[in-house]
Nucleic acid binder design. Structure first.
Length: 300
DNA sequence: AACTAGTTCAACCGCCAGCGT
DNA sequence: CACGCTGGCGGTTGAACTAGT
């Protein structure tokens, strides 16, 4: 902390990258793969700090980057994920193959943050003062610590979804009879009559975002749904499975083996997540033919 | 054509966590 | 344990571009 940034070193270029600099960077990464950004700048003579090299590669030069033309489906997904995750741009970007955190952040700030419907959604989360969010008790905080430790023990992988699962199956979160029941349990005083949550806190972000274990959500989002035994013949789940999993899970895939264990671990958070996404009339963004990127991580 | 205001987005900055020494 | 280095993240900036007058 407090150290001067490495990029402040004299002699390093700043500002827009030139084609020649790009070429040096691309050639180096082709040869040595990503990472070792500081080594890159030392070994190639590129007068850019490692951070700058990484940023240029990640946001501009990396293969399979989609630039501009964010589709309505992608926009919808961004809004929903932002509703769930907040300004965790890298996580949101991870759900949109080919998109970078920087692009999504820019898109949000320049387009979505200004849209009335987006503002409405955000305001419902942050501005309405209909509810009182109680400070968490010590026992709740202890519970949170335990949960974090448990999560660490499970070895929840860092979400890095660039590689789409092979043979991934699109998953729709269909309507659930239970609706927002789980969230209502979590937030008994909340008003979800309009399908959204509202909070009383003027200064603080909604506390439920703290209670949400983002790692768990990421684990779900990173799930390789191809592992799940998808019911291709419209098979009706057996009673055991019916009782074990919520209806919307059973409707769309029948978990088995390792995937079932993963799902068991993730189930509580999955229920919460699904409840949020069921709060609107529609299903996930990318419903139907354009649903390639939604959840499955499949590139369209 | 010239100027101004508004918008976009690439790049920078500070902070932080993880790791090696 | 302390320290330094590195990579990664979110917030911010400012140059380039566009639209309006």
């Amino acid at each position: 902390m407090g150290r001067s940034p490495r990029c402040d070193k004299d002699g390093l270029n700043k500002g827009a990258w030139t084609a020649a600099e790009d070429k040096i960077l691309v050639d180096y990464v082709k040869l040595h793969s990503e990472g070792k950004w500081s080594r890159l700048s030392r070994e190639t003579g590129l007068r850019r700090c490692g951070k700058s090299c990484r940023l240029r590669w990640m946001n501009y030069l990396r293969p399979n980057i989609k630039r501009g033309n964010i589709s309505p489906d992608e926009e919808e997904l961004i809004i929903r994920l932002h509703k769930l995750l907040g300004n965790r741009w890298s996580l949101i970007a991870g759900r949109l193959p080919g998109r970078t955190d920087n692009e999504i952040k820019n898109y949000w700030n320049t387009h979505l943050a200004k849209k009335p419907e987006t503002l409405r959604s955000v305001q419902l989360h942050y501005s309405q003062r209909e509810l009182t969010v109680q400070p968490r008790s010590t026992s709740q905080q202890e519970h949170e610590q335990e949960r974090v430790q448990e999560s660490n023990v499970r070895g929840v992988p860092d979400p890095e979804p660039q590689v789409a699962p092979q043979n991934a199956t699109d998953v729709e979160l269909g309507p659930s009879p239970g609706g927002n029941d789980l969230l209502k349990q979590m937030l008994p005083d909340s008003d979800m009559s309009d399908g959204s949550l509202s909070f009383n806190s003027e200064e603080e972000p909604p506390d439920f975002m703290i209670d949400f274990n983002v790692e768990d959500i990421c684990q779900i989002l990173d799930s390789d749904f191809s592992k799940l035994g998808v019911d291709q013949d419209g098979h009706v789940p057996d009673e055991e499975r019916e009782s074990k999993y919520p209806s919307y899970l059973n409707q769309h895939f029948a978990p088995s083996g390792e995937a079932e264990k993963d799902l068991n671990d993730s189930l509580p958070a999955f229920q919460s997540l699904a409840s949020l996404f069921e709060s609107d009339d529609e299903k996930w963004a990318g419903d139907g033919d354009n649903a390639d990127f939604a959840l499955s991580g499949k590139n369209s």
